[in-house]
Design a binder for these strands. Structure first.
Lengths: 233, 233
DNA sequence: GCAATAGTGTCTCTAAGACAGTATCAC
DNA sequence: GTGATACTGTCTTAGAGACACTATTGC
C-alpha cells in the first residue's frame, strides 16, 4: 500500500467558446515550453493554496479574457487523469471547465495574453491539440450542445443586447444545422424568461430592422429547444 | 509562486444507487476512524499508482459490491475540491462517481465489506453524511434523475429480466411521482432499443402475469421519457 | 363469478415543423 | 416599385396525457 496515497498535481483547463465571423471558436494558447512546445493547447493553470478548482478556473478565466466568471457559465466538464497524460511529471490531473463568452472586442485582453487566439473549433479538431486536449475539447463541445437544449446559455454567446436572428445563429453554428426562422422566433419569445424585449431596434444591412432583446431571468428552458436529429443513412 | 504547484491527494467516491423495498437506496459505510468516526460516508478510495480515477472508481466499486463496472453505468458526477473539505490533511480532492446497481442478493458481498449498508437516500439526506458527502449525494441524485429522461439507464436498476411494472417503479421511486401505467407501457415498448421481450412471463401475486423483458441495445432514449413537472404553488 | 394486475384502444391537447403571408426597412 | 430581412398566421402531425376498456391470472 505504499503507493495508495499518491500525491498529484492538479490543474484546471478551460474551454472558452465564442462565436465570431459565423464560426464557433475556442480560446487556445501557443505553448512556449516543452512538452508540446509550439503546439496549441487549452488555457489553464495550477491549483493554488487556499482555493478550490472552481476558483482556479475562475481566476484563469479572468486572467485570459479579462472577464469575470459570473456571466460566463463556468461549468465542470470532467476530470482527466490518465497516468501518462502529461509526460513532464507523474500524475498531473486536470479538471476541464466550459465557459461561454460573447464576441469580445479584443482577441485577448488579459494580462497573461502571451499568445492566445480565438480559433475555429473545427480547425482545432483537425490540427490537434497538445496533451489530451482533443478529448477535453470534444467533451466540452458535447456538453455545450446538450446545454443549449435545456438551458438559456445561448444568450451568453451574445452581447448585452441581441436580435433573435443572432440568437438563432448561435444554435445554428453550434449544432451545425439550419433552423426554421419563424418557428425559432416564436419559440424563444414565448419561452418564459428566456429573452426580454428592450424596445430598441437594430438596423439591418438590407431589410426590416430587428427588435432587440436581452437575456431573461430564467435559467432552464422550458419547453426545451428541440435539436433536429441528424439525418440517417 | 511557491504554492503554485501544490500537490494534493486524490480520491474517488461512489454514489451507488439501487432500489429495494420500494425505496431508493445508496451504499454507505460507517466510518471507523476519525474524522467523522461513527458517521456514515460514501464508499471511496485513494488513487493508486498507475491507474486513472475512472479505474480507481471501478476498482472500489468491485471491492464494495463485487460487481464489475461494466454494467453499472459508472459516470463522473463532479469534482469536490474545497480547501477545507477534509480536516485530516490539507487538500484531499475527490471525484464523485454515480453507479447504478440492481437489487443485489447480499447487502455487500465484497471483500472490503466492513460495515456497508444500503440505506434510503431520504434518510441519508435527513441524517447527514460525513465530509461534503451531502453535496455529492445531492448532485448524484440530480444527475441520476436527469439521465433517466434521456438514457436507458433505468434498466440497470432491474435484474437481467424484468417486467414493465418493475421498470415503471424505477421511474416512480427516483422521480417521486406516479406515472400512468398504460402510457408508460406503450412508451417503453415502442421506444426503439429500450426493452426487448424475452418471451417469458412472471406470475404476479394476484393478477395477470406480466411479460418479461431485458435491456435493449440502445443507449439513448428517443423520444425522451417526460418527467412530470412538479406541481406549482 | 370477483378481485387484481397486465395490457390495448382511443380521444384530447400541446407543441413542433412546414410554409404562406405580412411588415418594415434600403434603394 | 424591387429586394431583403423581420415577424405573424395557420395548417399538419407527432406525441404526451387521460382514461375507458379488454386480457389473464388466483381465488
Amino acid at each position: 500500500m505504499s503507493r495508495a496515497r499518491q500525491t498529484v498535481t492538479l490543474t484546471a483547463d478551460l474551454v472558452v467558446l465564442t462565436i465570431r465571423e459565423g464560426t464557433l471558436r475556442a480560446l487556445v494558447v501557443e505553448r512556449g515550453n516543452e512538452p508540446f512546445a509550439g503546439k496549441l493547447a487549452l488555457p489553464g493553470g495550477f491549483l493554488r493554496g487556499e482555493e478550490s478548482l472552481d476558483e482556479t478556473a475562475a481566476r484563469e478565466l479572468a486572467e485570459e479574457t479579462g472577464l469575470s466568471a459570473e456571466k460566463l457559465h463556468l461549468r465542470q466538464v470532467g476530470v482527466y487523469s490518465a497516468p501518462d497524460r502529461d509526460p513532464r511529471r507523474p500524475r498531473v490531473v486536470t479538471c476541464a471547465y466550459l465557459a461561454i463568452a460573447p464576441n469580445l472586442p479584443l482577441p485577448t485582453a488579459g494580462s497573461d495574453a502571451r499568445s492566445a487566439h480565438w480559433l475555429p473549433v473545427d480547425l482545432l479538431q483537425r490540427s490537434g491539440l497538445a496533451f489530451d486536449h482533443d478529448d477535453i475539447l470534444r467533451d466540452a463541445l458535447e456538453l455545450a450542445r446538450a446545454e443549449l437544449q435545456f438551458r438559456t446559455i445561448a444568450t451568453a454567446f451574445c452581447g448585452e443586447e441581441f436580435t433573435i436572428g443572432e440568437l438563432r445563429e448561435v444554435y445554428e453554428v453550434i449544432w451545425g444545422v439550419r433552423l426554421d426562422k419563424p418557428n425559432f422566433h416564436r419559440k424563444v419569445t414565448e419561452a418564459a424568461g428566456f429573452v426580454v424585449r428592450t424596445g430598441g431596434k437594430r438596423p439591418t444591412a438590407n431589410g426590416r430592422p430587428a427588435a432587440l432583446y436581452r437575456a431573461g431571468a430564467a435559467d432552464t428552458l422550458t419547453p426545451p429547444m428541440m435539436r433536429p436529429r441528424p439525418v440517417e443513412a
